[in-house]
């Protein structure tokens, strides 16, 4: 595979360009060293399982009903968390962004609490909402609240005054001001906040599931861990990461302003 750089093939590889070929070489090198490590016996058995075993485990996982029911639980928890945390975040963000006084009085608390590790609040959530899905939703909602609130507040403050004046000089009604001026103007920061909020609520929900639960993808990963079924654990992690990245990219599509989309 390493010779692909020197070959000058007219086919697919040629069309990839030098950067694409370098990528191929890197991927091939990583996969080969993975296989070599798996075969070498340097690490404990199965810590780095052979690729085909991971692939089989992935297929087996995706074909099993157990996976889909757990994935549905996690998806519902994340959706619930984002609905609660996102709504609260947008509301608080609009309030904070609308008043300089509120901003200076309350936003520092959000700024400082925002980056603290949220998972340490999980015991509180368990006591409040039980060991079932309630505490997972609460965990995700708490995580997603901060980025949504901060991003919305910044967006509300960043609305171009010219746009507001244009609206006034057209004698827009308050409702029209909201729908034609404010909402379109803060759409991007709010969606950006929701994207960040989605990312952290996935983490919050899944970490909570690994700590204490009997369903969900986090539980599935922990089950593979406690059975030392490494191929299955890799497979579950691959699915979780792929889903997170894909959904993140999906939301990002809406945050690029129209006309500037590449």
């Amino acid at each position: 595979m390493a010779e692909t750089g020197v070959l000058k093939p007219p086919g697919v590889l040629g069309r990839l360009g030098p950067v694409g070929r370098l990528r191929l070489v890197i991927i091939a090198a990583v996969l080969l060293s993975w296989e070599a490590l798996a075969a070498s016996g340097l690490l404990f058995r199965d810590v780095v399982p052979s690729l085909h075993r991971v692939a089989f485990a992935l297929v087996r996982l995706l074909a099993s009903g157990e996976f889909w029911s757990n994935a549905a639980v996690t998806a519902l928890e994340v959706a619930g968390a984002l609905a609660i945390g996102g709504t609260a975040g947008v509301a608080v963000g609009l309030l904070l962004g609308g008043s300089r006084f509120a901003e200076r009085a309350f936003e520092p608390y959000l700024n400082y609490l925002g980056p603290t590790p949220k998972i340490i609040f999980f015991p509180v959530m368990i006591m409040g909402f039980g060991v079932g899905w309630g505490s997972k939703i609460a965990m995700g909602a708490l995580s997603s609240f901060f980025p949504v609130a901060l991003s919305t507040a910044a967006g509300r403050r960043g609305v171009d005054r010219v746009l507001v004046r244009v609206g006034r000089s057209f004698h827009l009604t308050p409702w029209q001001m909201v729908t034609k001026i404010y909402l379109p103007a803060i759409r991007v920061p709010v969606l950006n906040g929701l994207r960040l909020g989605f990312g952290v609520s996935v983490i919050g929900v899944l970490l909570a599931e690994t700590k204490l639960s009997n369903q969900g993808l986090g539980y599935l990963v922990m089950q593979a861990y406690s059975r030392f079924d490494m191929p299955q654990m890799y497979a579950a992690l691959i699915v979780v990461f792929a889903a997170a990245v894909a959904l993140n990219a999906f939301i990002e599509r809406f945050t690029v302003p129209r006309g500037r989309r590449t």
Binding site: L207, G218, V245
Partner: peptide, 9 residues
């Protein structure tokens, strides 16, 4: 951007 902490097991 990846939720790496999920790989803690």
């Amino acid at each position: 951007a990846a939720p790496l902490v999920l790989a803690y097991p």
